[in-house]
Design a binder for these strands. Structure first.
Lengths: 136, 136
DNA sequence: TTACTTGTGTAATAATATAACGCCAAAGTT
DNA sequence: AACTTTGGCGTTATATTATTACACAAGTAA
């Protein structure tokens, strides 16, 4: 799997949604995206959700389950790679994406030893980032 | 942290909610719990959510972020323990709780090296359990 | 007594997500 | 060309999940 292959061709709506997530530089809810894109003619949540489905499928956007929000993959021009993990600061909202290969591999060992066919892994760490704990 | 300490005293509502989750033997949404407990006088979602908040705080119930559902901790009489992970079968809905200590420790290493104060870890594996992949 | 805390009941509403419909354009046939 | 298939799109309505706000009751600490 190439970590930085070129984008698939995006439709207009997909490009708009991806653009707003990239510009935001952090997570947005579907409805926040909708509001940002009303000036571009968006009118209904489904326009956002449909685009997000595709972008997530392409690996260009990640869904943060514990926030019900979405974030652009931190790899520029990313078109899909392995499982990512997220450290989410509850103070400032900052989200750091990382790839804990060893931990993921241990989790995969667990699933394989039980005959569990793994299709998707969610790893989300909630807490306080360095900046925010210093600043108190 | 004791893994099987005795319950805190539960209020009536908390005991009812915990009971329905235990009886279910699997995840339930808050509204599914509400429907189960209508015969016990429950009338509003908040009664369920308030009880769930406490039960999660006590560590007796886990929230499954990727399902927006709740499940009784698989340790009988559990009153809180370390981070758990969940393997969720998308075919049959079965949820297996486990404790991948090494993986969790690697994730904690990552956070510590970045000065990230970790407060809560979510690990959820989606896929197909052994039974369901055999059965096709 | 007062004040404070915790749990409760209720109504209303907010926030997140999907179903169902029909239209259109591109691409691949026959 | 006509026909079909596919994917995306727009719209309305609705379903699902979660919270805000307000009032009350019981316990307990001062």
């Amino acid at each position: 799997m190439t970590a930085h292959a070129s984008h698939p061709e995006l439709t207009k709506n997909q490009a708009l949604v991806f653009g707003s997530l990239s510009d935001a530089g952090g997570p947005l809810t579907a409805y926040a995206i909708l509001d940002l894109l009303r000036e571009n003619g968006f009118r209904a949540p489904l326009q956002v959700y449909r685009a997000l489905d595709k972008l997530v499928e392409y690996g260009m956007v990640h869904r943060l389950e514990s926030l019900n929000a979405f974030v652009a993959c931190s790899h520029k021009g990313c078109s899909g790679h392995g499982t990512a993990a997220f450290a989410i600061c509850e103070k400032c909202g900052d989200v750091r994406e990382f790839t804990p290969d060893e931990a993921i591999s241990l989790l995969r060992n667990w699933t394989e030893s039980r005959g569990f066919q793994l299709s998707r892994t969610t790893i989300e760490l909630r807490g306080t980032c360095k900046n925010c704990s210093v600043a108190n």
